[in-house]
Design a protein around this nucleic acid. Structure first.
Length: 597
RNA sequence: GGGGGUGUAGCUCAGUUGGUUAGAGCGCUGGCCUGUCACGCCAGAGGCCGCGGGUUCGAGUCCCGUCACUCCCGCCA
């Protein structure tokens, strides 16, 4: 007989009745009736009830076992009588009548119970992560994560992609996030950096002729944490393809994500064909570049109703800002229609919420008895109000909120108002995955702080219109072949068709105020690679952690990460970061210069 | 770097207007219990009320500071 088990704790069923078995596992729960004692024995696969009686020579030992001790039992599988069958557990038809019991590893009093999963402080959970990970929910999340990653690998390799590893110790890159640095022993005063993403490597893989690359890539960024963002490290499904246009990337990636969400999404419906929404349209309809399309509210420009109208506040605003750039710098009035929000109580609640957000307020009209109510409706007049209601498709019992000013300043707030109205009125169908592509991001944006034009995303993206656009158009009007995938309001990934032509890159950097020498200095390797026959290429990098979070239905990344750091970027289990010996520092030619405390 | 929230038993939390000896449930320890599966019943241990200062006759409670955790902003090409 095997030293520890003939079966696992999740597999004994009715047809095993009568067989002699050996099980090992953790004591999940003990129920001691004095003359009869039940032990729920747990392992990765499940829980099996074991029972022992006082006549048994091991009964005294059995009475000493406590939660989370590791024990081994031998015994015979018994059918439970009809009145003792537990239909809530897979092994509930049977129990094991213990013939002998051995303690393999006792446990001290628990700082963190496994059974029942009561809420526990995060630092305790992280300090005793090995106990925390035994808990059913997070144990399941971690397994699901493993299955998701395994499925991704299969889907990608089936689609003809090769998984390559790229270096972990690499060079610091000048753009983007703060790097994690690793001192070089052999080169005093020099440092490696951990990759923020394998961006340049994957492009080099394309230049090297490998055609289709993917990697479950670890990425390192030394930035502050959020609930959905680990400090330090995270994983991307990094993808790059040669000889492709935007549509080719979409056609490669979309089925992978759709299939993945259908496989692991608990049969919630998944968008079959991801709609393409241009960035500016997304800003105008939803006030954000990561819209939650489960929210049916779409905003619209209703400036026409207010220009020279009786509602002087808006009319005045519209007059005031007129001759800026056509899309975002001229004043407009946006409507946020809110189906079923037509009560004074709800409208007032939205209004005071807006004031809490630092806004002057949130104007509204609500519709009842066939007419609009509220101060704006009064000032606007009956006929325009009715026309407005028709245009927005609203009825009695509905409301519409208004945001006025320069869209560039209020769009983000309008988006949050849209989100709040949708959620408070429960207009969202939470039981689905709504995907979209956000496309046509601007290539450059105005950096108000430094009063200059900056790259708005990745400096390696190809501008739409190529060199000609860079040379002839207003930089702020140039779009890039740059795209995001958004699911349920979560930005899952960002990607682009890359710029594979050195002269375009030189010009793009020039517009952003970087001299050619900066480009050569910081991206010399990349620039050189593009000068020896580079294929047009592009890719994308969906965030693995966020995909798993969506599929596990959790808001917190630490619920889908085995050994996460806390918000202060500390690993409480391993004690990282930690001090090192003076010998180690000496070898690395490092002398500490610590802040005074 | 900035802002919000939280901090009372191992844990989750209650604690009135500032007023005697700070409570409950879970867990833990001991006892009883032959069909439980959140087993039940009885008893017990367990508290620098995060820490420091202040106001007050008196502070878990009010004020100031500080620390820890967490959420957000900045940041995240």
């Amino acid at each position: 007989m095997h030293a520890y088990r003939t079966h696992n704790c999740g597999e004994l069923k009715k047809n095993d009745v009568g067989s002699e078995v050996r099980l090992s596992g953790w004591v999940h729960r003990v129920r001691d009736h004095g003359g009869l004692l039940f032990i729920d024995l747990r392992d990765h696969y499940g829980i099996t009830q074991c029972v022992i009686e006082p006549e048994n020579t091991n009964f005294a030992t059995a009475e000493t076992v406590r939660s989370e001790w590791v024990i081994r039992i031998d015994g015979k599988v018994d059918a439970r009588s009809d009145d003792t069958i537990n239909t809530t557990m897979p092994t509930g038809d049977v129990e094991v009548r213990i013939s002998s019991l051995d303690v393999l590893s006792p446990a001290r009093e628990l700082p963190l119970p496994v059974f029942g999963e009561p809420e526990y402080p995060e630092d305790t959970r992280l300090t005793y992560r090995f106990l925390d990970l035994r808990r059913e929910t997070i144990h399941g999340n971690i397994i699901k994560r493993a299955e998701i990653i395994s499925s991704i690998r299969k889907r990608m390799t089936d689609a003809g992609f090769f998984e390559f590893q790229t270096p972990i110790l690499t060079a610091s890159s000048p753009e983007g996030a703060r790097d994690f640095l690793v001192p070089s022993r052999m080169h005093p005063g020099k440092f490696y950096a951990l990759p923020q993403a394998p961006q340049q490597f994957k492009q080099l893989v394309m230049v090297s002729g490998f055609d289709r690359y993917f990697q479950i890539a670890p990425c390192f960024r030394d930035e502050d944490a959020r609930a959905d963002r680990s400090p330090g490290e995270f994983y991307q499904l990094d993808v790059e393809m040669s000889f492709v246009e935007q549509d080719d990337v979409f056609n490669a990636v979309e089925p992978v994500l759709r299939g993945l969400f259908e496989e692991f999404g608990g049969s919630k419906p998944v968008t079959q064909k991801f709609p393409l929404i241009p960035f500016w349209q997304s800003m105008r309809l939803y006030g954000t570049d990561k819209p939650d399309l489960r929210n049916p509210i779409e905003m619209s420009d209703v400036s026409g109703y207010f220009r020279d109208s009786g509602f002087k506040i808006f009319a005045g605003l519209l007059d005031k800002h007129q001759c800026g750039r056509d899309w975002f710098e001229n004043a407009e009035v946006w409507a946020i229609p809110a189906k079923s929000g037509g009560s004074r109580a709800f409208c007032d609640r939205m209004n005071s919420w807006a004031q809490g957000e630092g806004q002057p307020g949130l104007g509204y009209i609500f519709f009842r008895d066939g007419e609009g109510a509220g101060p704006i409706a009064k000032n606007l007049g009956e006929v325009p109000t009715a026309k407005l209601r028709n245009e927005l498709g609203l009825e009695d019992g509905d409301a519409v909120f208004f945001v006025a000013g320069v869209p560039n300043d209020f769009a983000e707030f309008a988006g949050r108002a849209r989100t709040k109205a949708g959620e408070d009125l429960e207009l969202l169908d939470k039981d689905k995955f709504e995907f979209c592509w956000i496309v046509d991001f601007p290539m450059f944006e105005w950096d108000e702080e430094n009063k200059k034009v900056e790259f708005s995303h990745n400096p390696f993206s190809m501008p739409q219109g190529g060199l000609e656009a860079l040379e002839t158009k207003d930089p702020l009007e140039i779009l890039a072949w740059q795209y995001d995938i958004v699911c349920n309001g979560v930005e899952l990934s960002s990607g682009a068709i890359r710029n594979h032509l050195p002269e375009i890159m030189v010009k793009a950097f020039d517009i952003a105020g970087y001299d050619k020498s900066v480009l050569e200095d910081k991206f010399g390797g990349m620039l050189r690679a593009l000068q020896y026959g580079a294929p047009p290429h592009g890719g994308i990098a969906p965030g693995i952690d966020r995909i798993v979070m969506l599929l596990c239905g959790t808001e917190n990344i630490r619920e889908v990460t085995m050994f996460p750091m806390n918000q202060q970027a500390e690993d409480l289990l391993m004690g990282a970061p930690g001090e090192v010996s003076s010998e180690q520092l000496k070898e690395l030619h490092i002398r500490l210069n610590l802040p005074k405390t």
